[in-house]
């Protein structure tokens, strides 16, 4: 891979610099700096002003004083609803991710097995429902799930139940909503992974006498792990902080961190408090993810070195 010619070397590193530099710069400007603003707010105190929080720095007697207010973080620790909310969010997101995987994997698998010309069509069909507005899809589910909604009316009409099942404003409705909204996010990465598998491997396995099921669990599944990981990340991470779905489909006692943060921000008008929640949430999720990715990268390097 090494190329002794100098200009080429220069071009290569220049190209590399560009490829990593442009997204780096973009994220620095539009994610890191805004995040620093959030971090700053989390150390401030709320007040009635524009903007509605105190400044950290102040000039008095030609002295620059910086005051960091840790109250919001202490408060986070002391306000027990946050911990409950966080745990229940992770639980809801985790169960939803598993459900998405159980439903999404077979779909992705089936699409990858379709003849090549039909794959893109099927893929479009997966994504198409998402091109209607998210809110009206949720409202369509409300229409299905409510006490005198379509599902209950159908079941009552068939005589399968005597009383309407209470589904709306329960955790079940939240699971349905999240799975419905995020299913394409699971299917797409798994599909892109499965579709490139080398079929000869499977044939070799079956030639060696493996049943289709064994071949699937021994060959296909392990090979698609990186697709599963990507899909699970895309479902799990955003649904931890989900707000709209539990707000519209969940009951008042479906506690989620997204809802708590929302009410802290808008109802209590406590921008610093809400910022502190976000900072802690980011740290609690991003550190494990980064460590995980590092291991993954190391594995990859190990393979490359072989």
């Amino acid at each position: 891979m090494t190329n002794p010619v100098r200009p080429a070397q220069f071009l290569k590193s220049f190209g590399r610099g560009l490829v990593s530099g442009i997204p780096y710069f973009w994220l620095l400007l539009f994610f890191v700096i805004p995040f620093v603003i959030v971090l700053k707010i989390s150390f401030a105190e709320s007040q009635i002003a524009q903007p509605p929080f105190t400044d950290l720095t102040s000039f008095a007697d030609d002295m620059l004083t910086i005051s960091l207010n840790l109250f919001n973080y202490i408060d986070l620790y002391e306000y027990d609803l946050y911990l409950d909310g966080y745990i229940s969010s992770v639980k809801i997101a985790g169960i939803s991710t598993i459900l998405c995987l159980l439903i999404g994997y077979p779909i992705a698998y089936a699409i990858a097995k379709l003849p090549p010309h039909a794959r893109n069509l099927a893929l479009m069909l997966v994504i198409l429902p998402s091109w209607t507005s998210f809110l009206i899809r949720i409202y369509a589910w409300i229409g299905l799930l409510k006490n005198n909604g379509l599902i209950n009316n159908a079941l009552l009409g068939l005589g399968l139940i005597d009383e309407p099942l209470v589904m709306l404003h329960t955790p079940i409705a939240v699971y349905i909503g999240i799975v419905y909204a995020y299913l394409p996010f699971m299917i797409l990465p798994i599909y892109t992974n499965l579709v490139k598998h080398d079929h000869t491997l499977l044939e070799a396995a079956s030639d060696l006498g493996a049943t289709p099921a064994a071949a699937f669990f021994k060959v296909t599944l392990p090979l698609s792990v990186s697709g599963i990981v990507a899909g699970s990340m895309l479902v799990f991470i955003p649904s931890v902080g989900e707000f709209v779905i539990p707000e519209l489909l969940g009951g008042p006692d479906t506690l989620m961190i997204g809802k708590l943060l929302w009410s802290e921000f808008f109802n209590a008008r406590n921008w610093p408090g809400a910022s502190a929640v976000a900072v802690v949430m980011l740290i609690m999720l991003i550190i494990p993810i980064t460590i995980f990715q590092r291991y993954q990268a190391k594995d990859l390097e190990a393979i490359a070195d072989d």
């Binding site: 994220l27 890191v32 805004p34 603003i37 931890v240 902080g241 943060l261 921000f265 921008w271 990715q293």
Partner: peptide
């Protein structure tokens, strides 16, 4: 930091992403 930075926008709650960009 680069890897962390790329996944971080997934984690940020929408309200905070919106607010932080607005302030920026």
């Amino acid at each position: 930091m680069f890897t962390g930075m790329i996944t971080a926008p997934l984690v940020m709650p929408e309200v905070i992403t919106g607010l932080s960009l607005l302030l920026l």
